[in-house]
Structure formats: structure tokens, C-alpha cells
Amino acid sequence: MKRNLFTLVFLFCCCLFMQGQEIKVEAFSKLERDLTPRTEERLDLNDEPCSILKIVVAHVKDFRFEGNIVGDVIYKEGEIWVYMPAGSRNITIQNDKYGVLRYTFPERLKKQTAYEVQIKLVENLEKKVRTLVMPVIGIGKGHPSYGFMLGFVRNTGPYVKVKYDFSNFSSNLECGDDGIIKGTSDTPWYTGEKRQSRMSVTAGVIQRLGKLSPFYAYAGLGYGYNKLGWETVNGDWVKNTDQSCDGIEMEIGGIYRLKNISFMAGIQTNSFSYIEATLGVGFMF
């Protein structure tokens, strides 16, 4: 189950990254003096001479083509030759990283004529998927907790956030605010020393507030706890259940991006029993 979930998240992120990059035709031109269609002629199914598209692009082996193509595509250094019948109007260009382009020629191809197609691989800023990496701090009653937030977002995307205060205690004893050990009538002597333990793991969705807006909102759910312990004179720790809670974590907040720097502020609660502010400064690139 966990493996399948990881695979789905990985594929989702890969799809998001692909959407931020595009194939574009930078130039289309007829090569009037190119004799290749005559010297390296290829006939179509009607025994008519083909046209040749000479596609200029880096990493030629990463590209595939669909359409009215005659024979095998020829990959050369920095150039791809595609034979097509005269009169052809379009071709489909595919790349695993940059996606698919269905390109219509400015004119119908003529037989025994060579054409040059210059391809440019570009990053579309409107579709760019940004990666959020942010250290965070939770500030509530007691000492703060620390962690990080990781997310991927174009207009909408997932995130995960973990916080921990690096403090813990174990106890089989419980009491309320009155100090009486539960299940007994005993009230031990306490030293006045207190220990808090705070942890939370949340995941949710980041939503961009506008097409090119630098403002984002986020909301998420998860699990966490906040425990408070009192120390007795015998060195035992007693968990104060009136001041402790565990269960569902809920949070909302906002993020502002200034170029590649991002600022976050939000509020988080555990079962509405414990509330803390969450602040963070990190990178969104």
C-alpha cells in the first residue's frame, strides 16, 4: 500500500514538472538550394518523391515523431531527417520531458524539397511547477517545535509538513490539573519541573491565488500530539491529561513568494485543544 502511494505521488510530481516545459518551433524555412531530397531520394506509397524535414534540435535521440511519415526517421548530429509525402500539412513531435507538440506547417510541403524546422525547448513560467523547501517553527504554549515543509505547486499542488520539539518523556502515570494520580486518591509531591513533548505530521494542498500571483494559501490534515509532564520528588514523570492532547491536526495558512524566497504564516490545532502559530522562511524555486 505504501509503495503504491509513493509511486502515485512520484508520477503525479513528474507530470507536474512536464507541464512546466514546452516544445516550440522557433523557425520554419524552405531550403531552396538543398539537394538532399534528390540525392537521397525516398518515394512514398504512390512512388512520388518525398519532401524532407530537417529538424534542428539538441539531444536528437530524445525525440519521436508521428504523422504521415515515410520510412524510418534518420538521426544525425544535431539534426533529424523526416521524410514526408508532398502535400503534408502537419507533424506531431514528442519528448518524454517536454511533452507533445502538434505542429501545422505554414504551407503544404512540396515534393523533392527540403525544409528546416528549428525547435526551441522552453520553460513556460505560467506552467512552471515550483518546489517549496522551508524550515518552519511552531509557537504555542510551552517551548517551540521545529521542522520543515516540502511542497510542489503550479496552481495547485501537494505538500507535507513535519514538526517536532526534540523533547520527550515516558510515563505510566496520569493526573489532572489537581495533581491526583488517576485511579488513586494519592497526590504526590511535585518538584515543579515540567516537560513538554510536541509532534505533528500534516499533509494537504497549496493553492495559488491567481494566475501569476505571488500569494498562495494552504490547508492540511494529519496527526500529532502535545504532552505535558510533571516531575515528582521520586523522579517519576506524570502526564497531565488536562494539558495534553493527541489526535487530528488541522491547519490553514498563507505563503508569499518574493522571487525564489518564500514566507509562510499559519495556524495549527490539535483537536481544537492545542493551538499554535506556524512561521517559516524558505525557498520556492
Score class of each variant (00 low, 15 high):
265 A>E: 11
180 I>M: 10
73 V>F: 00
78 G>Y: 06
223 Y>V: 07
33 R>C: 08
44 D>I: 00
108 R>V: 14
152 F>D: 14
192 G>E: 08
226 N>H: 08
104 T>P: 01
173 L>Y: 13
27 A>I: 04
135 P>H: 05
226 N>G: 14
73 V>D: 04
255 I>Q: 07
169 F>K: 09
155 N>C: 13
184 T>Q: 04
129 V>M: 15
5 L>A: 13
135 P>K: 01
15 C>Y: 15
144 P>S: 06
142 G>Y: 06
222 G>L: 09
199 M>K: 01
22 E>I: 04
183 G>E: 05
60 V>W: 00
44 D>K: 01
9 V>R: 10
149 M>A: 05
197 S>A: 06
47 D>N: 05
135 P>C: 00
183 G>C: 06
130 R>E: 14
217 A>G: 10
91 I>K: 04
45 L>F: 07
255 I>N: 05
203 A>L: 02
213 S>R: 03
237 W>C: 06
7 T>C: 13
149 M>V: 05
99 G>K: 05
159 Y>S: 12
102 R>C: 13
232 T>D: 00
153 V>M: 11
134 M>Q: 11
100 V>Q: 11
271 S>Q: 13
144 P>V: 05
4 N>T: 15
57 V>C: 06
47 D>V: 02
213 S>K: 11
133 V>C: 13
28 F>K: 01
253 G>L: 00
234 N>R: 08
71 G>T: 03
22 E>H: 14
273 S>L: 13
201 V>R: 04
140 G>R: 02
78 G>P: 02
250 M>K: 05
78 G>E: 10
222 G>I: 09
63 F>T: 02
66 E>D: 07
94 Q>S: 08
240 N>H: 07
276 E>Q: 05
197 S>D: 09
143 H>N: 13
237 W>V: 03
170 S>P: 07
44 D>L: 05
117 V>D: 01
123 E>A: 11
25 V>F: 01
119 I>W: 03
106 P>K: 00
49 P>Y: 01
279 L>K: 01
240 N>F: 08
172 N>E: 15
31 L>D: 09
79 E>Q: 04
163 K>L: 07
117 V>S: 02
148 F>L: 00
67 G>N: 04
45 L>T: 10
96 D>L: 13
110 K>V: 13
234 N>P: 07
